[in-house]
Amino acid sequence: MSVVEGKELRIVGFLCNWCSYGGADTAGVSRFKQPTDLRIIRVPCSGRVDPLFVVKALINGADGVLVSGCHPRDCHYSDGNYYARRRLEMLKRFLPFVGIDARRFHYTWVSASEGQRWQQTVTEFTTLIHELGPTPAFPQDQTVLKEVRA
């Protein structure tokens, strides 16, 4: 059961294998109540998250995207999350330029033991996405844009 009221939305989560995925697992094992809108994709490291993964999800209908990795200094591969931080910060600042609400994309750090922090992050993010509502779709048909021209 979702803890957030209303229709379930599509939120994609990219979680690193070593910390955040473990954190999500800890939250689950501890039976913390969490919203169910999130669809988790496990990646080896937050450094594996190409900013274009996020963009592709947002353009093609995701209502929110959450990326989470190990805290700085804790990366399993020592510096993957440092690269991720630069790329994702660049993306966060770029998205609004093309009219995508930057609030729909959040990146953060959660360790394997932080079940509580994970629960908070997911709940807060999901609540925010519900407030924002479904993402305005990017037309997938070829006809001229009525919406824009009107």
Partner: peptide, 25 residues
Amino acid sequence: HWMSQKATLNEKMMFHMIHAIHLAG
């Protein structure tokens, strides 16, 4: 396989995001 060959707005937009983000910095 990142994108299809459809001439639709989402795909055109995606292409431009690829160009822009690959040029970052």
